[in-house]
Design a protein around this nucleic acid. Structure first.
Length: 559
RNA sequence: AGGGCUGUAGCCAAGUGGUAAGGCAUCUGGUUUUGAUCCAGUGUACCGCAGGUUCGAAUCCUGCCAGCCCUGCCA
């Protein structure tokens, strides 16, 4: 089938959903693609949602179709306006544009009501006065059929009256529900006469107090999709059984019982190692003050990742790398980290920062600090140069000095050993000062003035390179070093996931950055050479705060 | 256990009867004023297990095993 000449075929990801779409287009079941991203506004979006966003909006882009943003707001007791605003912002930040105005399931409350009436008229729905407990008992179990509600055979006329009374507020919360009349013996529990509407005297963030009955997800979602002309309704695996109800509703409504109506397809949700992904648990972390908020840089939320320094491009790339399938999988952090490193390596300006400073005094240097032009990106000259300084007093990282080199592989500074100072001269350790406890307080050394931008003339080999900042011009800074939020791969498996929280997931360090960073902006990424990728935090203060997004790849320390 | 799904290398994941893509990770070289990047190379995958059909099976059939989901008036 595929000809050799067909090599221009773009390297688009392949997955079962694209195969379905291709088939649907080929068979003319649909002549276009229209997807939707339908979050319930009851919390902040996380990276699992990012996967779904990239899927739905990405499909629309690739097939020149459309993707709606729809707030699935059928349960006013859990939803808030704060979340709808945050969700819009996160989707936009990720780089996607929804089709037209944002939609709300609540836009269709009138239509839902009419469709419910249609089902009642057809004898396919009834008002049931069993309470919640009775309903559960009547439902049966996984292995036993349920039994019919005593209200199941009420006439359509009477049900119409009852349903109107429900809408008018004549019944109390919990007194009755509207149920679909399907099959109390079905092996699909969701088909055992599921509730379609419940009574809730609750203020809704979109419709105010106009309604006191609210549709259930299974009734509202499929109809919303159909009203909006969605072709492919994508959701996660746990809705596989619900698909039967999705189809049942549309099959029994005159407006939607047509071949080109929407169909639901399910893919597996994202599970990431060392974190939790459910909104409930994320809520708990916030309310228990285990993190500073939804946008704590340790959170897997989109806003948290953003504050951590993740870029929209890196998250989109991540979504592409993990792909779409129906396998229950646990994705490693390494893929996420590879995505952000790949992006930042290309675009992040280089800079130097010393996180655990110790003073290095260059004994044979005197006078004013020397200005040096250093490349902003060693592999990309077009990014230009920056000014750094070299002087008599420098800071280097304590981890870059040992009085005695442990072995031949050691590539850092030691007494009587030379090392290159990044972007500057070759220096040699001479002696140290220590306090009473034996801690090194100052390192003294000498520099070779002939080695700026060149190798030693005498041909001697100097292997290591360490970074530094000039003491008098450096800016003090706080560094927040983040690590995984949990100590175990899958915290959800623990009896109490909060018990396995990583108490060292945030370590704060005080050090210095280059003078050139005086005007760094929040969310701007930098590579602090040899340390990792950092971004300025959005918290204002006298001292700059940098969040470590991800360390540089390290193929050496593990040996 | 009644039903719905899933099992391809350490982790993701292509593959839809013709003899196992790719990414991440790993390892090995080379370049390098970041132990980074970059470049080149690197995998005995019993394709969950056992049978069967076929000239030929990861792909079809049967049985078994394992994991996930379903008994909200949540989504």
């Amino acid at each position: 089938m595929s000809q050799d000449s067909n090599t221009e075929a773009v390297a688009r990801p392949v997955n079962f959903i694209r195969n379905i779409i291709n088939d649907d287009l080929a068979s003319h079941k649909h002549d276009h693609v229209h997807t939707r991203f339908p979050p319930e506004p009851n919390g902040y979006l996380h990276i699992g949602h990012a996967k779904s966003i990239c899927l739905n909006f990405g499909l629309a882009q690739d097939y020149q179709g459309e993707c709606n943003l729809r707030f699935d707001d059928t349960n006013p007791s859990k939803e808030e306006l704060e979340y709808v605003e945050a969700i819009k912002q996160d989707v936009s930040w990720l780089g996607f544009e929804w089709s037209g105005e944002p939609k709300y399931s609540s836009n269709y409350f009138d239509q839902f009501y009419q469709y419910a009436v249609e089902l009642i008229e057809k004898g396919l729905a009834y008002v049931c006065f069993l309470n919640a407990e009775e309903t559960r008992a009547y439902r049966g179990s996984l292995t036993e059929a349920g039994k019919d509600s005593p209200y199941r055979d009420t006439s359509p006329e009477e049900n119409l009256t009852l349903f109107a009374k429900m809408k008018n507020g004549d019944f109390k919360e919990g007194e009755c529900v509207l149920r679909a009349k399907i099959d109390m013996a079905s092996s699909f529990m969701c088909l055992r006469d599921p509730a379609l509407y419940r009574v809730r005297f609750e203020h809704h963030h979109q419709t105010g107090d106009a309604w006191c009955i609210y549709p259930m997800y299974d009734f509202a979602h499929c109809i919303s999709d159909a009203i909006e002309g969605i072709t492919h309704s994508l959701c996660t695996l746990e809705f596989q059984d619900n698909r039967r109800l999705y189809d049942w509703v549309l099959d029994h409504l005159e407006d939607f019982n047509r071949p080109d109506r929407p169909h639901q397809y399910e893919f597996s949700r994202l599970n990431l190692e060392y974190t939790v992904m459910s909104k409930r648990k994320l809520h708990q972390l916030v309310s228990d003050n285990l993190v500073s908020g939804w946008d704590d840089p340790r959170m897997p939320t989109i806003s948290g990742l953003r504050r951590r320094g993740y870029t929209p491009a890196s998250l989109r790339d991540f979504a592409e790398r993990i792909g779409i399938s129906k396998v229950d999988s646990m994705t490693g952090m390494d893929i996420l980290e590879a995505s952000i490193r790949d992006d930042l390596n290309k675009v992040a300006p280089r800079s130097m920062a010393v996180l655990n400073p110790v003073k290095l005094v260059i004994e044979n240097f005197d006078g004013e600090p020397l200005s040096i032009q250093a490349p902003i990106h060693p592999q990309n000259e077009a990014m230009g140069k920056r000014e750094i300084f070299f002087g008599r007093e420098l800071y280097i990282d304590r981890a870059d000095f040992l009085e005695e080199a442990p072995n031949g592989k050691y590539q850092r500074l030691a007494l009587n050993k030379e090392v290159r100072l990044r972007n500057a001269f070759i220096v040699k350790g001479v002696r140290v000062d220590k306090d009473e406890a034996g801690n090194i307080t100052t390192i003294y050394g000498t520099y070779d003035p002939e080695t700026l931008g060149k190798k030693p003339a005498d041909g001697r080999k100097v292997k290591g390179v360490i970074h530094f900042v000039e003491a008098s011009t450096a800016l003090p800074a706080v560094f927040r070093i983040y690590d995984r939020l949990f100590t175990v791969e899958n915290p959800v498996k623990e009896p109490d996931f909060e018990a396995v929280i990583n108490t060292e997931s945030l370590v704060v360090k005080q050090g210095f950055v280059e003078a050139g960073l005086a005007n760094s902006e929040p969310e701007r990424a930098y590579q602090f050479e040899r340390e990792g990728y950092f971004c300025r935090d959005n918290q204002a203060g006298e001292v700059q705060i940098y969040n470590r997004t991800v360390p540089l790849r390290d193929t050496w320390s593990k040996k």
